[in-house]
Design a protein around this nucleic acid. Structure first.
Lengths: 160, 160
DNA sequence: TATTGTTATACTCTATAACTATA
DNA sequence: TATAGTTATAGAGTATAACAATA
């Protein structure tokens, strides 16, 4: 029944929604999380085009740097990636010469994963541009805001 | 080089990662957002199984209730859904008798969308269970935490 | 010409089943 | 028997191109 206020005339692209609001959805944590995650990832992905790394690839390189020699399954589990989907991901990193599968000395079934020299170099470049990305976020919410946010998000992540 | 502390013996499922940490990834807002969003959505989806609604369907019903008579394109844009992907979504809601496409009196190209009586009833049930879900989240971060979180997330969403 | 709804299509992520070689 | 890596496959979600009807 209630007719809505106005519709902006410049309604060209799909992304714009004019003066309309999403109503009670605004109070839902899940909805706010999704919108923020979309915006932040979009900026992150754009940032990482410079080094041609997708978010998952970047996270894998970083973990390989932090924990050299882990098995595929261990890294996959650590990042919440199914080990079946992890295969192609490692394939690509290996084909690009960024990482390598080495035979595990203790278990001939498993691959120990290591960064190559090129992988370490690219990761260093990647982390530098990621810092710029994080600085943009801090520009929006402040250093204290980021600290608060990380605390709140880690508590929510305990739900899983 | 650095050998890692220990691997939990009970390493049954993919989801567990033992005592390992993700290193510098921990400080990335995008990573924290993704993990929290995954956990919260998982709880939300499970909650909504009772009314057989996926997140997108729920958000559409809610917007249709807040703004009755909007065109398909308007609702799609408001929720960041491509209008081409919105067609099947509305199809399903209509086939389930929850929503209806009415001819717009002013523009014969467009459909005005309305909730049916059944749609309003299901939405009411859905919102009640969503309240329980939100209460679980508040149990983790508190009312004040939720208020802070929504403020921070809406600032980050401005990036898009 | 531009817009609304639509179909067809493709690409990424994610999820499950089943195989092999090792343990 | 169980686990590590692998393949094949299927399902969501999301993206673009093109068309008919209407503006």
């Amino acid at each position: 029944m209630t007719r809505i206020a106005a519709k902006t005339p410049s309604d060209d692209v799909d992304g714009d929604a004019g003066a309309l609001d999403v109503g009670r959805l605004q109070e839902h944590v899940g909805y706010a999380l999704r919108r923020a995650q979309l915006a932040v990832f979009q900026d992150f992905i754009q940032t990482m085009e410079k080094v041609a790394l997708r978010p998952a690839q970047y996270s894998v390189l970083l973990v390989m740097d932090t924990h050299p020699g882990l098995k595929q399954t261990e890294i996959a589990a650590l990042l919440g990636i199914k080990r079946t989907n992890f295969v192609a991901l490692v394939d690509e990193l290996e084909q690009r010469g960024l990482a390598e599968r080495a035979p595990s000395p203790t278990d001939r079934r498993s691959n120990a994963l290591y960064l190559t020299k090129a992988g370490k170099a690219l990761l260093a470049r990647a982390e530098k541009t990621v810092t710029e990305h994080e600085q943009r976020l801090i520009g929006l919410i402040g250093v204290e805001g980021k600290r608060q946010l990380l605390g709140l998000l880690s508590k929510l992540a305990e739900l899983g």
